[in-house]
Design a protein around this nucleic acid. Structure first.
Lengths: 201, 201
DNA sequence: CTGTTAATCAAATCACGATTTGATTATAAA
DNA sequence: TTTATAATCAAATCGTGATTTGATTAACAG
């Protein structure tokens, strides 16, 4: 009945990656449908075959997929209850930064393009809600550490914002070709925040 | 010879503030000249009287003025050599965040709109250079603390990026009507990063 | 083979929004 | 008062870029 995609045919995922790349270079509004199309050797019109709702839909999917990816990484660690609070915290931050460093374009989109989602009231709300849930993961980890008596009594919401700010920012400045690898950066930043919360012995 | 501005006439500064406000709501590309004009009760065309180079010039001035303002605040503290390294660090972070919290729209522009400056090769380069100088201020302070033996041997560039990430992010989420005042937020975050670098006793 | 649907393209559409232009008005200086 | 200039407006200009439309081609199902 239906036709199976041929090898050279582009798929939705290729387009989303391409879009994220262009978004990083030019920003959502600065990106033309033709730019995204060119990146995957198509014409602008052809994109509507894959994304009937056009540019806005592409942005929406770049962000939801990106957030889902990052969330999955962090959640896996948060749910591992064999870890002590400080190990859990360190690993969560490490995993978070690694996920961002390995997908810089998507990471940058998560920082810069979320604002351009402000149409589609429903789609946007559901995205923001998932973003809040992600933040909640960190609050929970920090809270557990405080309860367990290993973390200082920091203001959890503010500490979390500070942490997210640093991590998100990695998506803005990190370059795989830089002085340090993603692993090293992730390690260093995890260390900074762990030192910031740990009770001094 | 020339005419002195009447009381009700708008001036360049009013327009820049208005522009920053609209930028925060809609982003640079999402902002129409008419939007900025409306904010100060003018028509789009009239803006060209104050900013002959149009929208791009307005963005450029919002950013350069904003960066200059923030830099001035931090620099004043960095240059005060009566302060111990840890006091200097804490006060610099505090002043930085206070400056951002008191000018949220400008702060948000510094984060989100710098990318849209990517025209005017010269103007852009000079801006980026000043931004680097600002970052350099922090690196210096941290370096001094390490030399003085009061700070851990953190990776200075990475630690600085982490700090800037957190601080910049304040411009994104902070609302003057929120649970905590700018002072409280500034205090809390300064505390987080001070604890992160201070050598445990 | 033949028919059906997926993928793609080239060429319209169609709006929107930055900038320009040509008055018009207000105010300070003389 | 006059006059020059600043400040402003309303109405064109002029491109650009998202989306639509109507073919055209390709690959699988039968």
């Amino acid at each position: 009945m239906a036709r199976k995609p041929a090898d050279q045919a582009v798929n939705r995922h290729d387009i989303l990656i391409a879009a994220a790349n262009v978004f990083r270079r030019k920003g959502y509004h600065g990106t033309k449908m033709a730019d995204i199309a060119a990146e995957v050797d198509l014409t602008a019109g052809s994109l509507y075959h894959h994304f009937p709702d056009g540019k806005q839909q592409i942005l929406r999917e770049v962000l939801t997929d990106g957030l889902a990816m990052v969330t999955a990484e962090v959640q896996a660690i948060v749910e591992d209850n064999t870890l002590t609070p400080d190990e859990k915290f360190r690993k969560a931050v490490y995993a978070h930064i690694m996920a961002l460093a390995q997908n810089v374009s998507v990471a940058a989109a998560l920082v810069f393009e979320t604002r351009n989602l402000l149409e589609d009231q429903s789609a946007r709300d559901s995205y923001l809600q998932r973003r809040d849930s992600f933040e909640q993961l960190y609050r929970q980890v920090i809270h557990e550490g405080i309860e367990a008596g290993v973390f200082r009594h920091v203001d959890v919401p503010i500490f979390t914002k500070a942490l997210l700010g640093s991590n998100n920012w990695v998506g803005v400045w990190f370059r795989p070709t830089g002085r340090l690898s993603g692993e090293e950066v992730a390690m260093e930043i995890a260390d900074v925040f762990l030192n910031a919360v740990l009770i001094k012995t």
